[in-house]
């Protein structure tokens, strides 16, 4: 009997702890620090591309849920590598390494939507403590399972259209997946400074408001990894840097 009682108490405690974790991650807005005013800020822009022939990724089968299968009878494209006709690589993250860490609570919330049984967009970048609205526009059950290295894991139930807000306390690479619909995957990167961007479908990016100085500019793609380069941003300057992933 004692062991059963111990198990019950342990379970109860674990449930309480679990609830606390989840609620902490999905809490409302936290007190925001005023954004630092940057004078003579510069801009870093450029393009990320993939050299050579883009990989021929087969479409991902959409099975197990009649609603989703009806929307995508031919499956969905594998979004792990999305390459434009001219080689522009979408969904790559570009960011500065080296600037002082700051809190992003005051930034406009970012959003990831579950619509048509897909995550839109596939790649999302947020700053530490910036709000991320996790929305579901679908009439079906979804769960949002978030796994990273530096933030506690998270698993949100989305039982109907609506949204929840989450914040992440540490810089991280977060893999997001719906375990109900295993083809639904996304990547969220959390940065500890405000200088980051995600490439669009043409592979282009732009990071604004960069204080003058020397930095390491990095590009990261979930499949192809990280490339880095030293850049110098002058007062009110504009820097153009392209990255190419080569086979």
């Amino acid at each position: 009997m004692l062991s059963f009682r111990a198990i019950s108490i342990a379970t109860l405690l674990a449930l309480i702890v679990g609830c606390d974790e989840r609620s902490a991650s999905t809490s409302g807005p936290t007190p925001a620090l005023p954004p630092a005013k940057v004078e003579h800020a510069g801009v870093i822009g450029g393009r990320i591309s993939l050299a050579g022939k883009p990989p021929a990724l087969p479409r991902v089968a959409v099975t197990g849920d009649a609603h989703c299968t009806g929307l995508h009878p031919e499956g969905v494209p594998d979004e792990s590598v999305v390459v434009a006709g001219d080689g522009g690589l979408a969904n790559a993250f570009v960011y500065l390494q080296g600037p002082a860490a700051s809190d992003g609570a005051s930034r406009e919330p970012a959003m990831i939507d579950q619509i048509g049984c897909q995550y839109v967009p596939h790649a999302v970048a947020v700053q530490v403590n910036q709000a991320l609205r996790v929305k579901s526009s679908d009439p079906v059950l979804h769960n949002v399972h978030v796994m990273g290295e530096n933030n506690p894991p998270l698993n949100l139930a989305e039982t109907k259209p609506g949204e929840q807000t989450v914040r992440f306390a540490a810089a991280d690479v977060l893999r997001v997946r719906c375990d109900v619909h295993q083809w639904m995957k996304a990547v969220v990167r959390v940065f500890d400074n405000p200088y980051f961007a995600v490439t669009g479908s043409d592979g282009k990016f732009e990071i604004k408001g960069v204080p003058p100085g020397e930095y390491t500019l990095a590009a990261w793609h979930e499949r192809f990894g990280e490339l880095t380069r030293k850049v110098t941003v002058g007062p009110d300057g504009s820097v153009k840097e392209d990255f190419t992933y080569k086979p």
């Binding site: 198990i7 342990a10 379970t11 674990a14 449930l15 702890v17 679990g18 609830c19 974790e21 399972h145 796994m147 506690p152 894991p153 998270l154 698993n155």
Partner: peptide
């Protein structure tokens, strides 16, 4: 209980 804790604590 272990299976349940894996779910509620989201622990791999």
């Amino acid at each position: 209980v272990l299976g349940g804790l894996r779910v509620v604590l989201v622990q791999l």
